[in-house]
């Protein structure tokens, strides 16, 4: 197992190099660069724009720009400099990390805590009224884009006289020290993002859990367990669910990158102080090193997530061995 982990970790290095090249190519395929926005401004002469391009190194060939960036990372751990904010990229990402991970983690927990029990219920009570009802809600959740759901929720809440829309806090609590009032205010704001962003994931997890469990419930060993006279609880939770949950563990690994990238449009619509809108802005401005670092971080989390999922699978399923 240990050798397997080491091997997988080493494999990540060429993968990351490949991903970084791909990301850089995609960024460079975008028309224009950071300085293009200045062409619209009569205050800035094209001569000046050329000067800025030189200073930012944008006049050099793309592969040189890429290699310089990689060299900075390898030799100094420097992920580059944001053209827009004039600050090191890692600082900017770090500043936004707490809320980003916080909101995403709460949403993911919400998704799983809600989805798994409902999935189990649906499977064990299949074709009951509640199963149909939850399936119906599930399909709605899958089919509505989260940003749209966010808009609808905000609209409904506003029409009902609510005022806590957008952001995580009311204005007076932003930046204030923590207090009971601030916590309550956070809860008043937080439910819309959690439902809006979480519902889509919840719905698909419910469907998956239901389908898997139904498969397992039809297998012979479940029949055997029941025939042995085991309690239905034991049959379901000890034997069936444990086997049905395997594919979901892989999905859990895939969710790691969404900790930071999450749903960008929903975050903009909900005015969350997370990385999503920030990244979107950087993309629009062609703030290339910021975009690169962000994409790399996201790719890295994806790889780590996959590895973690595989390890967890081996732990939960004794049949899986990687040696």
């Amino acid at each position: 197992m240990f050798r397997y982990i080491v091997r997988r970790s080493l494999m990540m290095i060429p993968m990351m190099v490949l991903i970084s090249i791909l990301c850089f190519v995609v960024i460079k395929l975008q028309p224009g660069d950071f300085t293009t926005q200045f062409l619209h401004d009569p205050r800035i002469s094209p001569e000046m724009v050329a000067q800025i391009r030189t200073r930012l190194g944008l006049d050099q060939p793309a592969h040189i720009q890429y290699l310089t960036w990689v060299k900075g990372i390898v030799t100094k751990g420097d992920f580059g400099y944001s053209f827009a904010y004039k600050r090191p990229v890692h600082e900017l990402i770090w500043e936004r990390m707490a809320w980003t991970v916080g909101v995403a983690a709460i949403t993911i927990v919400f998704t799983w805590v809600v989805a798994i029990p409902i999935g189990i219920y649906s499977a064990t009570h299949k074709y009951s009224f509640l199963d149909y009802f939850l399936t119906f809600i599930g399909f709605i959740g899958v089919s509505i884009p989260s940003f749209f759901l966010a808009l609808v929720l905000m609209y409904v809440y506003l029409s009902l006289g609510g005022t806590a829309v957008g952001g995580l806090f009311s204005q007076q609590y932003i930046g204030a020290p923590w207090s009971l009032g601030k916590f309550v205010d956070l809860l008043r704001h937080l439910w819309i993002p959690i439902i809006a962003i979480g519902l889509g994931g919840t719905a698909s997890l419910i469907r998956l859990m239901r389908a898997n469990l139904l498969d397992v419930l039809g297998t012979q060993y479940v029949t055997t367990a029941r025939a042995k006279g085991l309690a239905e609880r034991t049959v379901i939770y000890k034997h069936a669910v444990r086997n049905a949950i395997n594919p979901l563990i892989s999905i859990f690994g895939m969710q790691l990158p969404s900790l930071i990238s999450g749903t960008i449009i929903a975050s903009i619509v909900l005015n969350l102080p997370t990385m999503g809108p920030f990244f979107y802005d950087a993309l629009l401005n062609s703030d290339q090193y910021l975009v690169m670092t962000f994409l790399m971080l996201s790719a890295f989390l994806m790889l780590v997530g996959n590895l973690l999922a595989d390890i967890m699978l081996a732990w939960s399923d004794p049949r899986i061995r990687y040696e």
């Binding site: 957008g166 204005q171 005015n271 809108p277 802005d281």
Partner: peptide, 8 residues
């Protein structure tokens, strides 16, 4: 207040 979305 920093609010990116015009509708919000």
């Amino acid at each position: 207040l920093i609010v990116q979305d015009a509708e919000v």
